[in-house]
Amino acid sequence: MHIFEGFLPSPWWQLWFVFSIPIIFFGIYRLNKLVSEKRELLPLLAVAGAFIFVLSSLKMPSVTGSSSHPTGTGMAAILFGPAIAAVLSTIVLLYQAIFLAHGGLTTLGANVASMGIIGPVAAYIIYKVGMKANINFYVVVFLAATFADWITYVVTSLELALAFPAEVGGVAASLKAFMLVFATTQVPLAIMEGALTALIFKYVIQVKSDALLQLNVISESVLDKIKGASQ
């Protein structure tokens, strides 16, 4: 869920930049380290970023009738970890602002915070905890992608509520209002994206599971288990 250009007044848009920039730089630091170890990774990350952009430009069938698109951030977090997902999302968000008029430049900090940092971190934590707890791989992927979207939507509502607190009840009241209104589109959308991400992983495991092994997304024992179950 993008916040559009000009929507956040000062000082909120600056504050969200202050929040996001150090984390993006940490992501770049991790990226540099990774790339200097494995040179072949940079082109791979670039195509992954392009993949996320194209995925987010595809319209998804939506229950409410409004056309919506997947964000792909949950998937990026599972594949590359949250630090690199933050860098990729920043570039994707910048391109979305310039090519598709989704989001904006002054609100980039806030959008990166909700969609590129907090959402992916949540997805990553859910994924790691779920895999430790030995839950079915597809269920974990579904939960991670769904919650990444939901948490993104809660954070976006919070960003809006902080900037526009209600006269009666303050931030809490307007947070409730923003969440209620956006829930109609975001709740079913997140479930759709979760299902889509789980399906994508199912096909990827069938066709090109070595890619997932190379990225350390799943261990070989888990992969064998999934493949054994589907055959």
Binding site: I200, K202, V204, V207
Partner: peptide, 28 residues
């Protein structure tokens, strides 16, 4: 319909992922 589109979209995304992966290896 809704179910088929979900499946089609997943297949599209997967093909795209695999294509992009192979492309990434080739570019390097």
């Amino acid at each position: 319909d809704w179910r088929t589109s979900l499946n089609s979209l997943a297949m599209l995304a997967t093909t795209l992922f695999i294509r992009s992966w192979e492309q990434g290896e080739k570019i390097f």
